[in-house]
């Protein structure tokens, strides 16, 4: 009987990381992107998203976004949206820039609820959109409460 219980507990514990992984499955962020673009297709170029390959702690992951743009009155980055598809609220932040920024670059620290692809949607002047994804491996996810396991 004792051995049976021991085995049962062992199996339950082994299942925990798997449950943690299932805690927040990736959401389809396409509707969110569509709401911003209004159906205009975003080009997958010119957006460099720098994230660590492996983030040990999802509570604070350094994120650097660089957009290839001349930043002139005629052609500049207007807005940068950051999406994390496995976060409970996928829209992480929105940054409003303009020609006066001179350089289309933003650095911040984000929370990531698990290994996922971070998508950056950039709105350029003249209703054009660029998109850049980045994959990051998160060993210890943010928003993961032990009480939920």
């Amino acid at each position: 009987m004792k051995r049976r219980r021991f085995l049962a507990v062992g199996i339950a514990l082994a299942g925990m990381p798997a449950m943690a992984q299932r805690f927040q499955p990736p959401q389809d962020i396409t509707p969110l992107l569509m709401k911003i673009t209004g159906g205009v297709a975003a080009e997958r170029r010119g957006v460099e998203v720098v994230l660590p390959q492996i983030a040990e702690n999802g509570n604070s992951v350094p994120l650097n976004i660089r957009v290839d743009s001349p930043m002139t009155e005629a052609d500049h980055v207007k807005t940068i949206h950051v999406f994390a598809e496995r976060n409970p609220r996928p829209l992480v932040a929105t940054f409003h820039l303009g020609a006066q920024a001179g350089r289309a670059e933003i650095t911040t620290r984000v929370r990531l609820a698990g290994t996922q692809t971070v998508t950056v949607l950039v709105e350029l002047s003249g209703k054009r959109f660029l998109m850049g994804p980045a994959y990051v491996l998160v060993t210890s996810a943010a928003c993961l409460d032990e009480s939920l396991l």
Binding site: N59, N87, R89, V92, Q100, A101, G102, T108, R109, V110
Partner: peptide
């Protein structure tokens, strides 16, 4: 006196928000 940067942050930003941006 002129706005050069604006941001809307969500719950996905880490505690003690740190933001770096540029201007001319």
């Amino acid at each position: 006196g002129r706005e050069v940067f604006r941001a809307e942050l969500g719950t996905g930003i880490s505690a003690n928000p740190y933001i770096v941006f540029y201007t001319v």
